[in-house]
Design a protein around this nucleic acid. Sequence first.
DNA 1: CCGCCAAGGTTGTCGCGACAAGAGACGTAC
DNA 2: GTACGTCTCTTGTCGCGACAACCTTGGCGG
Lengths: 159, 159
Amino acid sequence: MYEVRWLTPDQLRAWIRFEAVVELLPTVLDSQLQRDSALTHFEYVVLAKLSESPDQVLRMTALAATTNSTLPRLSHVVSRLESRGFVERMPCPGDRRATNAHLTDEGRAKVVAAAPGHVNTVREHVIDLLSDEQVEQLDGIMATLLQRLDPTNTLRILP
Amino acid sequence: MYEVRWLTPDQLRAWIRFEAVVELLPTVLDSQLQRDSALTHFEYVVLAKLSESPDQVLRMTALAATTNSTLPRLSHVVSRLESRGFVERMPCPGDRRATNAHLTDEGRAKVVAAAPGHVNTVREHVIDLLSDEQVEQLDGIMATLLQRLDPTNTLRILP
DNA sequence: CCGCCAAGGTTGTCGCGACAAGAGACGTAC
DNA sequence: GTACGTCTCTTGTCGCGACAACCTTGGCGG
């Protein structure tokens, strides 16, 4: 039985709405990609991050970090993507413990084909609904939250 | 091959951060509740919504709406909660198709015990990190997004 | 009444995410 | 050179969420 600081009405309202968006948004992203490209949102992110990196290669650990994922989760997903021919695993030359994930040409084609529809969904459901000022506010708020959520601050390295 | 309006650098940065938070936040909420109260975040929300309603009763459909869920998902969760003694199903007097979910005393005790820890987590990871102004901004942004995400606008009925 | 469709819930199946356990490889201390 | 701890990744198991199929009841037109 310790002291609890409950939320004020304003805080509560903001939280309930935020909570709702956090609950609903992933479903929207997933179903669009699933429907149009037979990809999970997470699978898409993996392919996208690989396509943005030099030589289309990233170490599993680095890939896990940029996708806000854990290694076990990533490993499973890469296995699936590998069996579909979008990614191939290659031993890392310098470190025999490490594995490199490499985007195949087929995988690259896949993500290139999926990107427009995904960007469109992001616009329709988020960006285009907000003013430039609100986008800036959103960025500031999320940057603050990430300092708590992302211990390694991987995401502070941004373009 | 149609026209694509890519995101501007500012928009992209905001989106990547928002995406990261949407990915990471649910895990934090789930693991705290799981660790301290052996509850899923969604289970907690179900119990909480019931505890806030008159007579601790809500129809399944209404409960699904206020928890941003689908009926199948809710039905499964209520079954689990029922087997643990936190909720009981009762036929709705007025409509023999409908089912009422009723929070038991045990369930009420459970949610009351879990609430402080949960509120604390929400404060630590979200509310207390933001200024009052940012909380207001967050509320405005999320309200806008919900108009798209929540077709029935169930959540616009707020305290 | 009676045939039809919509509304309200439940159940079954499948796939993904979380977690724990394990197998190699690297570094380092002695 | 060898023993220990750490890093890197994989694998197996379990539980939840999405989706589809199904069943019952209610409303409504003829």
